[in-house]
Design a protein around this nucleic acid. Structure first.
Length: 427
RNA sequence: GGGGGCGUGGUCUAGUGGUUUAGGACGCCGGCCUUUCACGCCGGAGGACGCGGGUUCGAACCCCGCCGCCCCUACCA
């Protein structure tokens, strides 16, 4: 790749930025950043009916969240309509196109073929006989996709067009427009394999999180999404799975991009996201969670729960009890608060109340003391306490949970549970 | 219908003629760890590389046919 690569990411603002589009944006960005080239953001909004400002805003926001920036643009094709119309007129004048019931069609030769040189798939020939004279301008004079793309790629000096495979069949048409427009060599093309849902069909909302916005809301980290998306259709070697963004920029190349479509597997993204979450500095994780929840003071809750999170959305269910009391899960209560649970909990309360050093080590020895004293299994003591403190049977480590709540709050919650179980008044 | 692309365990992939009894990862199953759930660690099941021919001493890798899936075939992009 030359160091003067000029790439473009050209989404159509007819909807949110989908995962496939995000992957295309990522690959273009990696290529631009890795080569010291330029990335242009272009909005293909020649379909004025379906293109909306809201979608443009959403796409720009999604790119921002993914931390993918661009060097030029965003430029809207609709703003370049005059330029497109001028070229359409010139093509008609020069005989490359003609009017047909008001619309304008490009002349496609009856014989011969146009060959697409694809960086990923090699040379692909398209027989002209199978391509009709296609419309490049509507009868109202407005330019159509294949014309606008060709004119813009040419005007913008795009050297590499990297886009989804769904555009592969359009490429010979754009190549023909380009040729009619002038003699300049066309850009290099690379068509990325499409992304499918678990059912093998084109990815859509019915497959769960399908847009970048939904990924963000589901609690995924942009760096994890970048890493995962990079691996959907590209691999560096036989064993490397984790890449920092710098490593991706350095190592990504089109010649290792796969040719076959990939299925977006949210389970693997969850796993990868969990790995990123666990390796993050607690302060940073707390900052992101505080931003997400619009509240401060989450650091302590983060420290006891970080190792259990797979997404940011997992935080509240697992550590919300630290911030505020949670309703008790009836099933948890019924399962744990049986037999002599009340008595064990009362003894636990006494041990915690009498504890001098209220830290993890102190709490642990106090609780294990109760276990030894009663001669029961640890969980006979820990689970009732867990339910009293958190409302459920699943939570962060019990010693840490006790300490993070503090003695006063912990005893208060235990008392409330004792009252409910009727296991006797607090001593 | 026509044109084009693709086809390695459920999923993402490594592997382009022999070092492959096809490697790694997610998921799944079992075990260990253990205060719950995770994490982590260990082990396991699951692919004869879409199918059928051919070339070759030898093919997942080359050739042909077929099948399947997807894309284009719009005055959508």
């Amino acid at each position: 790749m030359s160091e003067s690569m000029r790439l473009r990411f050209a989404p159509s603002p007819t909807g949110a930025l989908h995962i496939g589009g995000a992957r295309t944006a990522l690959y273009n960005w990696l290529l631009a950043r890795g080569s010291g080239g330029t990335l242009v953001l272009r909005l293909e909004d020649t379909d004025r009916e379906r293109s909306t400002p809201e979608n443009v805003e959403q796409i720009v926001e999604a790119l921002g969240w993914l931390e993918l920036d661009w060097d030029e643009g965003p430029v809207s094709q609709s703003e370049r309509s005059d330029r497109h119309r001028a070229e359409i007129a010139r093509l008609v004048e020069e005989g490359h196109a003609y009017e047909d019931e008001g619309a304008v069609r490009l002349r496609v030769p009856d014989a011969g073929s146009t060959t697409v040189r694809d960086e990923i798939r090699g040379e692909i020939a398209f027989e002209h006989a199978a391509i009709t004279d296609f419309v490049i301008a509507r009868s109202d004079g407005s330019p159509l996709y294949n014309l606008a793309v060709a004119v813009d790629d040419r005007d913008m000096g795009i050297t590499h067009v990297v886009r989804g495979e769904d555009h592969l069949s359009n490429t010979p048409r754009q190549l023909m427009v380009l040729r009619a427009l002038g003699d300049e060599p066309p850009p290099d093309y690379a068509h990325l394999p499409l992304l499918h849902g678990p059912d093998g069909k084109k990815l859509s909302k019915r497959h769960g999180a399908a847009s970048v916005e939904e990924l963000r809301d589901a609690g995924y980290l942009p760096e994890a999404v970048r890493n995962y998306l990079a691996l959907l259709g590209w691999g560096y070697d036989a064993e490397t799975t984790f890449f920092t963004t710098d490593e991706l920029v350095e190592r990504f190349s089109l010649d290792r991009v796969s040719r076959s479509p990939a299925v977006f597997d949210e389970q693997k993204l969850r796993w990868m996201n969990g790995r990123y979450l666990r390796e993050m500095q607690p302060a940073e994780l707390a900052r992101r969670l505080e931003e997400r929840h619009g509240r401060a003071g989450l650091r302590a809750a983060v420290e006891v729960s970080q190792e259990k999170l797979q997404t940011l959305a997992d935080f509240w269910p697992t550590a919300g009890f630290v911030v505020e009391r949670q309703p008790t899960d009836p099933r948890a209560w019924a399962k744990v608060m049986t037999g002599g649970a009340g008595d064990r909990l009362r003894l636990t309360r006494d041990a915690l109340a009498a504890l001098e050093r209220f830290d993890v080590g102190g709490v642990e020895s106090a609780l294990r003391g109760v276990v030894d004293e009663l001669g029961v299994k640890p969980k006979e003591v820990f689970q009732p306490l867990r339910v009293a403190l958190t409302g459920g049977t699943v939570s962060p480590g019990i010693f840490e949970s006790v300490v993070v709540l503090g003695r006063e709050e912990a005893l208060s919650r235990i008392d409330a549970a004792l009252e409910r179980v009727g296991g006797g008044a607090p001593s």
